[in-house]
Design a protein around this nucleic acid. Sequence first.
RNA 1: GGGCGGUUCGCAUAGCGGCAAUUGCAUCUGGCUGUAGACCAGACGUCCUUACGGACUACGGGGGUUCGAGUCCCUCACCGCCCA
Length: 386
Amino acid sequence: MDKFSFSITQTSKKSRARTGTLRTPHGSVETPSFVAVGTHASVKALGPDDVHMADSSIVLANTYHLFLSKTHAVIKKTGGLSRFMRWDGPTMTDSGGFQVFSLGFAKDHDIGRNSSIFPGENLKKISKAKDIKESQHVKILDEGAVFRLPDGTRTVLTPEKSISIQEDIGADIMFAFDECTSPLATWEYSKEAMERTHQWATRSLEAKKRGDQALYGIVQGGEWDDLREESAQKISSLPFDGFGIGGSLGKTKKRMFELIGFVHERLPEQKPRHVLGVGYPEDIPELIRLGADTFDCVAPTREARNGTLYIKEGRLSVEKAENREDFSPIDSSCVCFTCQNFTRAYLHHLFRSRELLYFRLASIHNLSYINAITRDIREKIKQGRF
RNA sequence: GGGCGGUUCGCAUAGCGGCAAUUGCAUCUGGCUGUAGACCAGACGUCCUUACGGACUACGGGGGUUCGAGUCCCUCACCGCCCA
């Protein structure tokens, strides 16, 4: 790995926060940084110029989705993800490990839709190991995961296959194939899944052929300190270029932060750390305090499309009638393209009229908003104020 | 003048003897954290109840048949189409 490097430029004295530079063959990322999610090789509703305008410097695509549509082969022929989507900056690919959960257990139990990924402290552990391992849509084997598709066919993802697809896609940073676990999983099952993830981590490393892509290992272990401890040790003992924290991070937000902090303390200081799938605006300061260098989340773009816009006071539900004649910007302190040029009244109108422009303007705003929060904190760390 | 067809909760629809009554739109409330997501859930006659549930008022007006009527019968009003 020649072209990939991570250097820490400033370390906070007040917390585990640090600033750094992640160098990749497609440019650098100043960390801490939010990674925009572009599952199907596109940050939904946004073109590369929009993504730049929103001040994002790195984009994450998904192995599972690009593999299902066989697009990975097309991307390979094009010369890589960056060229394919005409995004000149750095890219990452998730391994498909999250889909083991989201299309399996989560789908069967409606997690993320009608039940929270943070089910709360009082919830009984209703899941049996085999319930999780063999859900209606995904069957998990030591070899890999078997996905049952809506058309009745099956597709299999193994660590080797995930890496091979990720090499076809050619993002700057790849993730090892892992098993993302449910917040309802038992300790016993979480241990089993973690051990499987460790096996898959080794196999992912062995499967890697290209020398111009970085590979991050993923720490699992669910909500248990002993498992997280074991997983952090195991994964950081392997020659990964960086580390991801994945899987369920407990039943409450509070626990999530405890676990992220706990794992970070056990990862090597000098290597980059990525928190997978966390990034509400209000989560970001704490995430960075705990030592996260990068983190990705679908929330900014998804919530934008669903009518929720980020503002200083929290959230703005753009569809509410009170916005109908509100001629102020979404957020008065926001300097994004949308806020500089458009009113709440217009966004409200576009949303209700189902105009496609809404998605672009709303996504630019939420993404800009998240990036602005992150940039501010980055500056504060540099100035010793965070 | 004659013949059909219609009138249901904002609009549009379903309903053909057990119904506070279908569905869509609209409206309102919630939700969304490595994208199953331009998505999902709930409310949508009034009142009481945390809830289960209960009370009342309702399918153009009036009358009737029936244990029971948006639903069947008579009549009136209005709307639509066709024939004069």
